[in-house]
Every structure is written in C-alpha cells, then in structure tokens.
Design a protein around this nucleic acid. Structure first.
Lengths: 227, 227
DNA sequence: CGACACTTTGAATTATTTCAAGAGTGGTGG
DNA sequence: CCACCACTCTTGAAATAATTCAAAGTGTCG
C-alpha cells in the first residue's frame, strides 16, 4: 500500500487514512494462502523489471523501494513499502518495476497464481484485492498532484509528514532511505532535498539529529504546505 | 482506464497495451447491471470533490477530465477518460476528484452499490474490477515517471503519442482538450506546452492543422523521447 | 584511525515559469 | 456573408526555482 503522501492538502478535508484493516490482514482468513518468509539485505534486488511476475510480497520489517528507470539512468521511485504493506501486483505477467530492499528487510512471499486462484474462488477476497488496488491508485493520484504541482518544499514536507505518520510513533522519525531515494521519489535532486530539509529546519518545522533521524514539528510543517 | 502514456519508454520493451478486453465489456455479462445513459455539455461538472461517491461512469462519446485542485488554484489532471473508459471508482465514500466533460459527452451511469453487490456475489466480476484497478494503477505509476523525471519535450511527446494511440485511427488526431488541460495533466504551463508543440513541429515530429488537429510522425516523435 | 559513503553547502547554469503582447479561430448576429 | 467578439493559442523577454558542478563536512564501520 506504500506511502500515503496525503499531506499536501487538496482543497478541503483529506479522507482520513483508512481506519480499519491494514493491507496486512487480508490473507489471514485464507488458510490456503501460506506465505514463506524471506529476507533481503540492504540494496538487494527483490525482483527486476521485465522478469516474470511470479510472487507478491508483504513487508514484515525493513523497507522496500519499487522504481522505474529510463535509458539514461533517471530513476523514478513509485513507492516505498513499509511494514504491513503488500507489493508486487502487476497487471500483466511481467514486472514493470524493479524492487529492492532499502535496508535489511524481512518479507513474506506469496505465489501470485495462488492468490489469483483464491480470488477467483472467493469473491470477498477478490473484492478486498480490488479495494487494495483502488486505494493504491488513489494514493498514486495524490502523488501525481505532488509531482506535477508541488514545490520542492511542499514535496519534501508532504513526504516527511507521510513517513512520520507511518514510522513515527513518537515525534521522531528514523528515515530508512537516503537523500537520493527521497529525491527520486519526489522528482527532485538529492541536493534540492537536502537544501529543502535544511530550510524546513530553519523554519522550525523539524529538528535533525543526524541525517536520517528527524523530529517533526507537525503543526508548523503542515502550515508550510498549506499556503 | 484513462490514457496510457507508455510512450516514454522505461528501459526496455513496454508491455504492449492490453490486446483483448477493453474496460468496456466488463458489465456485458451482467444483466443485473444496467446503466442509464446521460449526457454532459462541455465543461459541465459530472461530480465534485468531497461529494458522495454514488456512481461510476462509462464514457460512450466525448471525453472527461478528472482532477484535483490545491487551495491556490493549481490543478493536476490525473486522467483523461475517452470512449470505452470507466471512471469514478473511489476507495472511500467520498470523491477525491472532480470530473468534468471536456466536450459534449455521453456516458452510461452505474450505481456504485450495485456494482459492489454484484462483485461481492460473483468472484469473476470482482476479479475483473481488481484487474481494472491494477491496470489503472500501473498507468498512474507510468505517469509518475513522466511527471517526476520527464523533460517538457518528453512529457508532451509521450502525451501526444498516447492520445494518438487512442483517438487516431489515421495519423491525424483531434485533441478534445485545451492547452491548459494538457499542461495540467503534464505538470507544465500552457505556454510551455504550446512552445513544446511548436518545437516538435519544427523537428518534424508532427504537423499542426489548427491548434486542436495534429498529424503525428510517430517514428520521429518516438526518437525524440528515447534519447 | 582512516576510508568510504552519504550529506550539506556554495556558485553558476538552465529549463521552465511568469508576465505581456499579438495572432488565430469559431460562433453570433447584424 | 461578413464583422466582431470572446476565447484559445502562440511567441517573446525577463524572472525564478531547481539543477548541475564542485568542494567540504559528517558519520559509520572495519
């Protein structure tokens, strides 16, 4: 389900992120769907573009990036996948993305065919998968707004708020990804991300404690994106 | 299902756009799902952000834009919907977008609850809806690549090729949308879109016959996006 | 402790935007 | 049928946000 960067508020109230079931529990009621645990080291590839799309993954611990690459090396990260998220669904038989572990990561692996078989047999499972895809789509559309119309500051602020929402039980967030990863997710350069974080710190919207550890002042941060 | 801007080639061969069933036929085998025809005039609103998401629509003729708006008026069009496309699915009960007819448009309207009821009862319908959402998501991710990493020229070229694919049986394409619509879809300004189209014409990648009528030289156009 | 990878900051460059005029185009009514 | 009006589109010149190139700083791990 990836990151919901719903922090750049479209006009009015944003739809509060789904209160109940997190992707994860989806296969709980399916004893016929058993995933095998697997681990990937930092920067290890989980699957590559153009490979056969045989598996679907659920993140248990760690973090995953999925991205597309252009011929000259430009990279667009289309999603960060954090604990609880499912990733690896494709419309065809072939991977449209590459997936890599951002840090040491534990996942559970499901056979795509198996999921499809269960979905074809049990409507309520298919409906849930539909809902999952629809939510992912909705987030993707929100990210389009950010990429197409957000300033660097809005993009970075929205990103930090979204990660904070997912990873920061307290105010403090440990970012698993590098500046380059963030940049490639937000359609910026790593220098711009770095500069923007410095500005945000200057504006009192966050405090850095080492590059990967930030404490958010959510109120001020939001105010910066809203005007 | 909207536009597939798969023209900015990620590394290798792009997945040839789904050969068989176009969204449309989805409800053909569902006599219990009857849609009512309806028409909308140019620029008429079909639904608005924050409204109750009661209906789903299928475009018969014309074209529709769905978009999000920021407080200060910046607009991001997340999809153009052309004949055959279904639009209006939402993850929650509330609209996250506004939808408007781009030109005089005929649609068929379905009750969302009715679709959900059928999906809950018939797994094969739910699976198809899942597939539809997954394809839309995949396209959205491709559009992210364009928005995050494409130059103005790449964005416009990819857009024109995609529209041409959908609307141009011949080489000639009649664009239903304005330069501003295109700009808001591609994350550019209308001036940049106009200038870029002029450049593309200068490079021999297209010929204009009035602003809304272009003839594509697909080969040259593609070559421009690939380097 | 030193090496390496990542991050920050600075200065110059550039793609795109912004602001500002014109030039087409299409529709309506005299 | 033509003229005019409104709207869209094109083009130009100046401004700007972000990028690129470059160097120094920070932290981490053997």
């Amino acid at each position: 389900m990836a990151l919901d960067t719903a922090a750049l508020h479209p006009r009015a109230v944003e739809s509060a992120s789904c209160p109940s079931l997190h992707d994860g529990d989806l296969f709980a009621g399916c004893p016929e769907l058993i995933g095998s645990p697997s681990t990937f080291a930092r920067d290890e590839e989980i699957y590559g573009e153009d490979e056969d799309a045989e598996f679907v993954y659920k993140v248990m611990t760690g973090a995953v990036r999925t991205y597309k690459i252009l011929g000259d090396g430009r990279r667009q990260i289309t999603g960060f996948h954090l604990p609880g998220d499912l990733f690896g669904f494709e419309p065809g038989e072939v991977r449209g993305h590459t997936a890599e572990a951002i840090c040491d990561t534990r996942v559970v692996v499901f056979r795509r065919r198996q999921i499809e078989r269960v979905a074809a047999a049990r409507a309520e499972v298919a409906v849930q998968l539909w809902g999952l895809a629809t939510r992912d789509l909705s987030q993707a559309q929100h990210h389009m707004l950010l990429l197409g119309r957000g300033s660097a500051q809005e993009r970075v602020a929205a990103f930090l708020l979204a990660v904070g929402e997912r990873l920061g039980s307290t105010g403090s967030v440990a970012l698993p990804m590098t500046r380059r990863d963030i940049a490639d997710y937000l359609g910026l350069t790593l220098e711009t991300v770095s500069r923007t974080i410095s500005q945000l710190e200057g504006a009192g919207a966050l405090v850095r404690a080492g590059a990967r550890q930030v404490t958010l002042r959510r109120g001020r941060m939001r105010r910066l994106t809203e005007e």
